[in-house]
């Protein structure tokens, strides 16, 4: 029993990280209809930035976090203004290919700069643990969950309580109407993309001190984020968080209870779950935008 609750806690911690990363993907997809295949690579860029800050400048990742998020926003904004904007509202293949290309470039550059050796951002508290109710979490993982919760709450507030956020939501729901009421769609796209990348940079920063990472991790993260977005229903923040928890829990449960092969089955499990869910509930766990072809 004690072990099970520990596994569940680990699953929730992992789920918190996934929620953060998937929310970035969901926001961009919901607003622009662009599925960013370079999403996982962006998580890694965030992780490597934090690692670099710690390794060369001695800055703690948690202190660097706001700066890295700002960098993420800037990176996303520039990427959107220069490249992504040219493929929005074109056939989806074009944006898939474009972001696929961006992902390949990012992976190549990361390999060149950091090699394929796994890295961990080591901090003063890397080896510490936090205990609650007899369960333990390594301190970096506790910060990962805490950071994810705080950032997600702030994102929710930004999207629902500010003028910018409402413009983004309006654009997501009805582009034509948003244009009519004078919303500059291109600017909204750039802001949404910027926020999405800022979220994943944050996710990467938090991940980097909690576990090892390496350049080939990118597509795996993209896949999991996508599985979560589909499970949760596009554009539903609560759905995304819920689905992230489900995927996190499945992963830790598999790793602990399926001997020897469980740890390697993250994607396979998530993928089978997606297929099952899409067959049973074509619009995701909590409804949301239609994902089937409509025939």
């Amino acid at each position: 029993m004690g072990q099970l609750s520990q596994v569940v806690l680990d699953g929730i911690v992992l789920g918190g990280f996934y929620a953060l990363v998937a929310q970035g993907l969901s926001l961009v997809f919901g607003v622009m209809g662009v599925l960013n295949l370079a999403h996982g690579e962006c998580v890694l860029i965030g992780a490597y930035l934090a690692w670099t800050a710690q390794h060369y400048l001695g800055v703690d990742p948690l202190i660097a976090l706001p700066v890295i998020m700002a960098l993420g926003f800037g990176f996303g904004w520039v990427l959107c203004r220069t490249l992504v904007i040219r493929v929005v509202e074109r056939p989806p293949l074009m944006s898939l290919l474009l972001t696929f290309g961006i992902g390949a470039v990012a992976q190549g550059v990361l390999l060149k700069l950091f090699s394929s050796t796994p890295r961990v951002t080591t901090t003063g508290y890397s080896a510490d643990v936090v205990s609650i109710f007899g369960l333990t979490i390594p301190t970096p993982r506790a910060f990962m969950l805490l950071g994810a919760v705080v950032i997600l709450v702030l994102t929710w507030a930004l999207l629902n309580r500010t003028r910018v956020g409402r413009s983004i939501q309006a654009a997501a729901q009805n582009k034509a109407a948003a244009r009519v009421v004078g919303i500059d769609i291109a600017a909204v796209y750039a802001i949404a993309f910027g926020i999405g990348i800022a979220l994943v940079f944050a996710g990467g920063t938090l991940l980097g001190s909690a576990q090892g990472f390496y350049p080939f991790l990118g597509p795996l993260l993209t896949m999991k984020a996508f599985a979560i977005v589909v499970l949760g229903g596009v554009g539903r923040m609560t759905g995304t968080v819920l689905a992230a928890m489900v995927v996190g829990l499945i992963e830790t449960l598999l790793a602990s209870y399926v001997p020897s092969v469980g740890t390697g089955l993250g994607i396979a499990a998530a993928f089978i779950l997606v297929v099952v869910v899409l067959v049973v509930r074509p619009n995701g766990i909590s409804g949301g935008k239609q994902v089937t072809a409509g025939v």
């Binding site: 898939l96 896949m223 996508f226 390697g264 899409l278 994902v291 072809a293 409509g294």
Partner: peptide, 30 residues
């Protein structure tokens, strides 16, 4: 795989197939 996945709209199908690809690679490894 196609029977359930081809019911999805284009983009979802694309990336779900990427998932199938990665899942099979995992299975081959595991």
């Amino acid at each position: 795989v196609g029977y359930p996945l081809l019911r999805l709209r284009g983009v979802y199908f694309s990336i779900a197939m990427l998932g199938a690809f990665m899942a099979m690679r995992e299975l081959a490894l595991v």
